[in-house]
């Protein structure tokens, strides 16, 4: 336990001293502010466009924005933030192989599964803080300008995307134990997400796939039912745990 805590502490210090945490926090805050800002600016931009379009004979109806517009932005932008997050952590294990920093830790008796678990914990914690920070900021603005009440199951829908993020972290850890370079790890992680997306094009399979959680914003307008997502949530959690276990097993064999 002490070894695990010491290694986790090292990961934490790394997160802070490399500036990674600060960058991610600011970035996710930026994303959080951008969502309502874009929503707020939409009518104004429409007006500007309408003026120029009028000359060509087109008329644009006035658009009405509300919290929903902002939340739509949130779900449109969060995948980008997620990708940046994963890119930032793509080398979390491979950088240690390449530099050879882990060998010393392992020869000193640090169990391999503790390495995986410590890195997983730190990434999950960072993702959780960053994600809910972004959510909280968007929520705050929406509350201030409009009314969040018009969207249903706000927290639940957000939790779906959050779980998806954790699944991707587990996948990335597993890939980190298989591949030697961060680009290979990222490509493989992206590949798996893509597979999930492509298989999701089959209507019958969609419900059971992790990437289905990205569409969880459907809950907000009431277009999709909550039940529709439970399957995907359980599958994602299951796959995440399996991924972590597989990562430990693969890593032990190396």
């Amino acid at each position: 336990m002490r070894a695990f805590l010491a290694f986790t502490k090292k990961e934490w210090v790394e997160l802070i001293r490399t500036g990674r945490l600060a960058i991610l926090l600011v970035l996710f805050s930026l994303f959080g502010i951008m969502n309502p800002a874009v929503a707020k600016l939409t009518p104004w931009m429409m007006e500007m466009m309408a003026d120029s379009l009028k000359e060509t004979g087109l008329t644009v109806a006035a658009v009405k924005v509300d919290a929903m517009t902002s939340w739509t932005q949130f779900y449109k932008n969060i995948p980008i933030a997620m990708v940046i997050f994963l890119l930032m952590f793509g080398g979390i294990l491979t950088a240690e192989y390449q530099k050879g920093t882990l060998i010393n830790m392992l020869t000193k008796g640090l169990a391999r599964w503790k390495v995986i678990l410590a890195k997983g914990c730190i990434m999950t914690a960072t993702w959780t803080v960053c994600y809910w920070l972004c959510y909280g900021i968007t929520y705050g603005y929406n509350w201030y300008f409009w009314e969040n009440g018009i969207a249903s199951h706000l927290g639940l829908a957000a939790a779906c995307v959050w779980i998806l993020g954790i699944w991707l972290i587990a996948v990335m850890l597993l890939m980190s134990t298989v591949f030697q370079t961060s680009s290979a790890v990222l490509a493989a992680t992206g590949g798996i997400a893509l597979v999930s997306y492509v298989v999701g094009l089959i209507p019958k399979a969609r419900k059971f796939l992790p990437t289905h959680l990205l569409a969880a914003s459907g809950m907000l307008s009431g277009a999709g039912s909550v039940e529709e997502y439970w399957c995907a949530v359980w599958v994602t959690i299951g796959l995440g745990v399996l991924g972590l276990l597989a990562a430990v097993i693969v890593y032990n064999k190396k």
């Binding site: 500036g19 960058i23 930026l30 800002a37 104004w44 603005y141």
Partner: peptide, 25 residues
């Protein structure tokens, strides 16, 4: 569009972007 409505975005946005810039530099 009134400036008061934009301020709540502009100020934090500027702060965040400058923080990011400062950290990077």
């Amino acid at each position: 569009m009134n400036i008061k409505e934009v301020l709540p975005f502009i100020i934090p946005l500027i702060i965040a972007e400058f923080t990011l810039l400062a950290i990077s530099i």
